[in-house]
Each structure stands twice: as C-alpha cells, then as structure tokens.
Nucleic acid binder design. Structure first.
Lengths: 212, 212, 212, 212
DNA sequence: CAATAATCGAGACGGTACGTCGCGTCTTGGG
DNA sequence: CCCAAGACGCGACGTACCGTCTCGATTATTG
C-alpha cells in the first residue's frame, strides 16, 4: 500500500559520470564502502561457488549489508552479477596501426590473458564452459564485453584491407567471427595457451588451402 | 497403455552398458510412455516459456505424471533439461570423403541449420542469449553436442592433410576451433544464413593474407 | 494494517521470558495480524474438514500468507495445531471457597461445556475419536490443557480435606484422576450431558459402598 | 484399465473362523509367515519410533515382503496398525462372582498391568499420552479394546447392586466411567503403580464425603 | 502331468503434502 | 535519505509416503 520506493536517491546508478554542477541530492549519501563490499562479496562468492553460490541473501550477509542496500543499487540479481563482472573488464589495447598482424595479435593476446586471470577465468569458465545457467546474463555479457571487442577487431581488419595488407576480397564478418569464436570455443584447460594467439592469427592469415 | 516390451527396465539410469544376457531387473518396468511424455512436455514448455517456464511441477502436470516419476529418472531439473535437449540432437552427416571442402561444408551447413530449426533454435537462443539461469547445463550441452561435432570435424581436417588437399603445416586444432567457434559466435538473428556456411569454409581455406 | 506496538518482536519463539527493559529486536517486527489470520484459518479448516483438512499450504492460502510466515513461527504442522488449540482454552472458574461440592461442580461443568462448544468439541472429538493421525499432539494437549486443570482440581480437594468437608483419609490423586478421567472417558455423544456433572460429583462424594 | 484386484483370494481376512467344510480356494494360499512377519515388523517399528515410524514401505522392507502383500490383507495403514494392536490384547479375567470388590480389583489390575507391559505400554502411552496423531485409530481401539472392557465392568457393577453389595442408587454409568477413566487418565510414569488398583477401587467404594 | 489361479518379492505409478530456499519488497529503529 | 536487520508474499524445489498397478517367479489345487 505504501508507494514503491523509487530509486532516485543521491547517486542513481544510471549516472555515468559526475554531473556538471556539483549537485547533491538531499539526505545521507550512499556509502561507497557498502558498494565495494557488495561487489567484492559477489565476486568472491562467484569465484568460490559459481553461479548457484551467488544468492543475494548470502552476498548481503557477507558484505555486512542489508538486502535493501543491494536492491537500492541494482534492480535484481542479474544486474548485480553483471555489475560485478563489469568491474573486471580489461580494455583492449589501442591498435598501434603499424601492422595488422601485430594489432590482431595484441588483441587476441589480451583476450586470451583474460582466461588466465584466475578471477576472470572463473567468469569465463562458468559462462562459457562449466555451468551456464544464466544465458540472459551471458547475453548482457556479450553485449557489454564481447561486442565492443568485436567492433574493435572489425575496425582493425577493415583497415588492413584498405592498406592492402589483407586480401581485398576478405569477408570481414567471417574473419572477425572466426577470431573471436575460436577464442571462445577454446577449452580453458587448453594445453598450450602461451602461443595460442600466434597460432590463431597466423593460421587465419595463411588459410588452410594448399597452394598448388 | 501396455508398455513397450523393450523397456530398459527399472533401476538406476547409471547403467553404462547392457548386461550380457538380456537381464531384467525385478519389479515393474519403467514406463517408456511416461518418459516420452515428460520429455515432450519439457520441450514444449521450454519452447513456450523458456527456461523459467520449465518447472518440474508443471512438466509433471502436463505430462500427466507424478513428480516422483520425473525424479526417479533424472536427479534434478537440470538433467531433465539436458535429456530433453539431447533428444533433439541432429547427427552430423558422415563425411563422403570426396573433397574436404565438401565434407566441411556439409558439416557446417548442418550445424547452421540447427540454429534455424525452431525447436533447436529456441534451445540455442535461450541458452546463449535469452533465458535465465541454468549454469552447468551449457557445459553438459557442449560436452554432449558440441564436442562430438568437433571430433568429427577434426577427423575430416586430418584426412585433408593426408590427402594433400590442405597445407601440410595446417594447425588442426586452430582450424577446428575456428570453424566451430565462428558458428557459435555468430548471432542467431544473422541476416544471411544461407551462404554463411560457404563463406565461412571458403574464407578459412583461403586465408586472409594477401598473396604477394 | 499497522502492527500492534506490543508485538513480541522478530526473532525465535524460544524466548522464555521478557527481557528486563522492553527490548526490541532489530528488523521488521512480526505481523500480529498474520499470526491471527493463520490461527483462525487453522481453526476453521480443522472445524470444516478435520485433521486431514489442515494442510499448511491451504492454511497459508486461506490466511493470505506465505508458507514461510507460518514456518517462521512454528516448526511444523503439529505445533501450529497445538497453538491453534491453545487459543481455545477456556479457563477454569476460580473456586469460590464456599463449598467443595460447588467448586468441583463448577469445574466439572466447565470441562463438560468444552465438549459441547462446537469448536472445542470438534477438537475433542477429532482428537479422541474421529480424526486421523496426529501423534504427539494429544500429549501436548494434555500437558497444556488437561494438566493445569488437574492441578486446580487437586487444590480444591486438598482444601476440602482441610475444612473437614471431605474424609480426612481421602486419596487426593485418586479422587482427582477419577473426576477428570471420567469426563475424558465419557463419549462425546453422551445423551444426558446436562446433569452429568451433578451425577459425577455426587456419585464420587457418596461412594458406591452400601452403608451397613 | 485392468480390472481391480478383488480381495477374494483364499482366506479373505473377513473370515473370522474356519468354514464348515474344509473349503479351500484355488491358487497359492497366503503365507502365514508373511502375515506374522508383517505384524511383528509393525509392532517393532511402532515400539521403536512411534506412529510416525510406521510407514507401510518400511514395514514391508523390514518384513521382507512386498507392499502388495500388506495391502492384500489390510485395506490401509490404519487397519494394519489396528490388527497389530489387536494381537496384543490381554483378555479381562472372568469375574469370579464372590465379591464385587475382588472382581473389580482383578479387572483394574489387569488394565493397569497393560500399562506396565513394555509392548502394550507403548501402545497405551502413544495412544493416550505421548503421541496420538491417529484419533480415528484410537476410536477403533476404544471400540475393540476399551468398550468390551467397559461392558464387562458394567456387568459386574450391576450384579453388585443386585446382591446388595453396592448402594441401590448407584449410578452405573458414572461408576464405570470413573473407574476406566481414572486408569486412562493416570500418567504412565505414575509413582506407585502396585497399589494403584487397590486405592482406586477402595476410594470409589467409600466415596469422598465425610460421614457426619 | 498340465493348466489354472492366486500368491510372492520388487518396484514403478499418479498423487498430495511436506518443509526449505531464494527472490524481490516492505517496515522497523537508528544514524 | 541512508543503513542493518529481518519479516513478508510468492512460488519452485526435491523428498517422503500413500495406496495402486504391473512385472516375472512361485506354489498350490484342480482337471
């Protein structure tokens, strides 16, 4: 019967940057500490027990926080998870523009490294290979993490065609899907991760067909 | 109403192989009909309402079956879903052995077609981008659906190297990951599915590098 | 809608006594209304359909309450039933102290009346002769309802001996068991309830033995 | 769809005695051993774990018997329990007819002894004092065990009135309820069981009122 | 001796209720 | 306006028994 609490307190989480004038909503400001503790607890729980282990009630308890403090910030568990994952994002390197092979390699190496970082690995592993009960989450993950990377990669390939480094009839989408897909498809326990990036980029550049 | 005579018999489904003589466990055999009805109901519910809609209680009601009859066969909801999905598997075509390109193309086409079949598409779509929260289901899905396909594809590539159709220094794993990964990574609402397979196979065969 | 201010507060119901200062546990207090509604629904269902009819799920639905709200208060169905029955207790009249016969009669009459009151009668009838399957409920019932009444009755008899109204060699326990037991043993559909109390008390006072 | 199995095999349990001519239904006769084992298992389980512990499935397992073998004999769990209890019945002694006091005493002593016998005690305790979730069962118990005893007792009292041993204005029903009720009401852990019977009978014979 | 018939054990069947868990919301008193 | 705590309604989960229904095998009596 009480009016629904509208999430319009100081510092709504849709704010992506500081407002122009230093405007401050009335009332007690949200605790930055609480926010951090929640994210950390979420990430820890996820790393420990996977998706199932991330229960809002447990996160709250571990972060020493009330459930409402979580729901004041994120509308549901999924967004919480997503926010937690987002805090792990490692940005792709800016292409240096010297050689397409080098730029692609740098990108692929960063993406492979993500699977090695223990914390991100868990995210990767669970999302893509171990227990993926959260496809909607995965969609969002793709949207916010995978897609931007693809776009960057697409740009590099396009530039390669323009510079003549790549075949002029290169199928950009296919090339891009091939690279990102291969990383995605590779099993996390792959045996020789160190030079996987090199093999992948070079393999793709050369093609499979025997040159007669 | 009469159960089929070749019923697998009562007992745990952990049976890994048929006994030597056609052994029959004591007690009333499990109803093959019930099993079918359950799988169908599961698939229907999934197609209708996605993951969330697949509640064991609803499946049981729709299949005209007690919950225990479900739990007697599968230990939890996840395994039920998996079994249901498994019943959708479309086997890869046997490689004809004429040309590697044709064999690969046939395989890729089947895999692409899976994403077009409404029922399987839904599985794919929900698993990879829509549904909600089913962790290790996808792992099992990969294990039972994706992995076998990869194995088949690997075999074709290996044969291509032997016949000289593919470069002798082809990196088999990379090639295989590239193909399957690209299909996986392709968005389900891809606009030009019809020739995607051709583009993918040919793109990979030719490579990206400009021939100087 | 507002919970009564003297709500017992949230927390386990194992609290055996009130804290010194009116201590209030943190968190939202338990709704007194919900408690009432649950008890009422339980009693209604019991009156309507007997023991079998008292299903926690139905009680919850009828009380407009979640199952958890019930299980937060009582650990199981049995305790719920007991609590519901306890709320029906009709206290024994205070002995007026004029004559033992009158005091006993008043007590017996109240106890007999309980078997006439439709709601309490149902409890009695079902517990002792009709319902189905609730083991240790009756024990608790006796503990909380029967025993206190016996204690009160015992006190009256003791006083009667002191005042000389009863034989000095009266066996108090026997007398008390005799009275309460007879009421207990009497069939619920007894045809002449109105003067049963008088007959019982007088019968006991006079004894059976012919006076030679 | 199959016709219901009618319980008309050899030796339907409605047979209360051997038929006149030694008629024997065709087919395999019911195993007397199984019947014994079932009853024993029921009684054991009851003694061990009370009402709750008596699950038909457990009884069957413990007796080394199929569930159908139980349900072929008794229509439901309640009847099984009742049959088991019935096998414990200890008949009242025939009144010797010398003195009413002696006859009553003998009867009361037997009834008290029932509460001492470990096996019967459990039945008594659970039915009347410890865990009585089965009121319908208790009704049947009263019907088949308690009621016959009351009838016998009533007969003795009536004879006492005729012989002049008891007051001519004795209220037979009250007297009878008083005796049986007191035994029923007495707690099983009563402190001095040995002479309880004497105290009860004598207490009732003398009455409580002081003789002025 | 073969046929018939009812038994036996085992265990699956459709149901119903249980008690638990987690979600996202609401409501306390106190910063 | 925020905070920690914790109750709320809801709804799915997986378990436990109930009483019934097959199975193949066994055991008597009848023809």
């Amino acid at each position: 019967m009480q009016p629904v609490i509208l999430d319009q307190g100081p510092g709504t989480d849709t704010e992506t940057g500081p407002a122009q004038e230093t405007y401050r909503r009335p009332g007690r400001p949200r605790s930055e500490q609480a926010e951090q503790a929640i994210i950390e607890a979420t990430l820890d729980l996820f790393a420990e027990k996977g998706f199932e282990g991330v229960c809002v009630e447990v996160v709250a308890a571990r972060a020493g926080v009330g459930k409402a403090t979580i729901y004041r910030r994120w509308p549901n568990k999924e967004e919480l998870l997503l926010a937690a994952f987002a805090s792990l994002k490692s940005p792709l390197p800016e292409p240096k523009g010297v050689s397409v092979r080098d730029d692609l390699l740098a990108m692929v190496e960063v993406m492979c490294a993500d699977k090695a970082d223990p914390r991100k690995a868990r995210r990767y592993a669970l999302l893509l290979g171990d227990g993926d009960k959260y496809p909607r989450l995965m969609a969002r993950y793709k949207e916010t993490v995978v897609q931007p990377r693809r776009d960057a990669m697409r740009a590099v390939i396009r530039r390669g065609i323009e510079t003549g480094e790549l075949r002029p009839d290169t199928d950009v989408e296919i090339a891009m899907l091939t690279l990102t897909g291969a990383i995605m498809a590779q099993e996390k326990d792959g045996t020789l991760d160190e030079d996987f990036a090199v093999r992948l980029v070079d393999g793709l550049l050369q093609g499979l067909a025997a040159r007669s």
